Amino acid sequence: MAYSCRNWVAALGLGLLALPMSAYAADKVTGDLKGSDGASHGTVEVTDAPKGVILRITATGLTPGWHGVHFHEKGACTPPTFKSAGGHVHAHDVAKPVHGLLNANANDDGDLPNIHVGPDGTATVELYSTLVSFKGDGGRPALLDADGSSVVIHAKPDDYQTQPIGGAGDRVACAVLAQ
C-alpha cells in the first residue's frame, strides 16, 4: 500500500507522541556579558545537561576574529581587566593546572573551543563541555559552587597548548554565572 506525504507525516507524528518524555529537567543560568568598558556586550546562558553543560554566547561590540573562551573559577567580573574572575575552573585536587584541549596532560576543566567574531563585532555560538557541571556531578568541577564562576572571552585565540592560558591574552569580556 502506498502512503501519501500526509499519511507519513501523520504516522510520524503519532509515533513521536508515543515516545517517552525525558525525566531530566534542565536548569539554566544566564549572565550579562560585560566588556572592559563596563557596558553590556550580550549574554551568556549555560544549561545543565546530564553529562556536562551547554554554553550559549550572544556577543556584540567585540574585535573581529578568533577569541579564546574559558570558564573561570569565581563569579566576579570587575572591569576593565576581570582579574576578579580568578583562574580557570579545575578540579580541586589538581596541584598544578595544565592547560590545553590539545595537551595530552591537560587537567584544566575550564578549557573551551575558540569562538569567531564576525566583521560586525558580533558572535552567536553554542558550545558543549563535558569537563564541568552545575553542581559537581560526576566528579566534575561545579560552576555553581558557593562563589559561582564566570565565562571570560579573551583578546586572542587559544592555541590549546601554551601554558597557562593558551596565549589567549587579555580578558576583554566577562559574565558572572551564579544562582
Rank of each mutant, 00 (worst) to 15 (best):
7 N>S: 13
8 W>E: 12
10 A>H: 10
21 M>L: 12
12 L>C: 11
21 M>I: 11
36 S>R: 15
48 D>Y: 03
4 S>I: 05
26 A>C: 08
20 P>T: 07
9 V>G: 04
29 V>S: 04
23 A>D: 05
42 G>D: 04
46 V>D: 04
8 W>F: 09
36 S>W: 08
32 D>P: 00
40 S>L: 14
41 H>L: 04
47 T>F: 02
5 C>F: 11
17 L>D: 14
46 V>R: 00
3 Y>M: 14
8 W>N: 11
44 V>C: 10
14 L>H: 11
22 S>C: 05
30 T>K: 10
35 G>V: 06
7 N>E: 14
27 D>G: 00
8 W>I: 09
19 L>G: 07
11 A>L: 11
6 R>H: 05
19 L>H: 09
37 D>N: 14
37 D>A: 12
49 A>H: 00
38 G>W: 08
14 L>C: 02
43 T>D: 08
21 M>A: 15
17 L>R: 13
19 L>R: 09
48 D>L: 06
4 S>D: 07
12 L>W: 12
49 A>S: 06
6 R>A: 13
14 L>D: 08
32 D>E: 13
49 A>N: 03
27 D>N: 00
9 V>K: 08
45 E>D: 09
45 E>F: 10
25 A>R: 02
15 G>D: 12
9 V>L: 14
44 V>S: 02
19 L>P: 09
35 G>F: 00
13 G>T: 10
10 A>L: 15
26 A>V: 02
38 G>C: 12
11 A>H: 12
47 T>Q: 09
47 T>N: 00
27 D>K: 02
22 S>M: 07
16 L>A: 10
4 S>K: 09
29 V>C: 00
41 H>F: 05
36 S>K: 15
43 T>R: 08
38 G>V: 02
43 T>P: 10
10 A>W: 14
25 A>G: 06
48 D>E: 10
16 L>F: 13
8 W>P: 04
24 Y>P: 02
42 G>M: 03
38 G>L: 14
13 G>I: 05
17 L>C: 15
44 V>D: 01
46 V>P: 00
42 G>Q: 04
23 A>H: 08
46 V>H: 04
42 G>K: 03
4 S>F: 04
13 G>W: 08
28 K>N: 06
22 S>R: 06
37 D>K: 12
28 K>M: 07
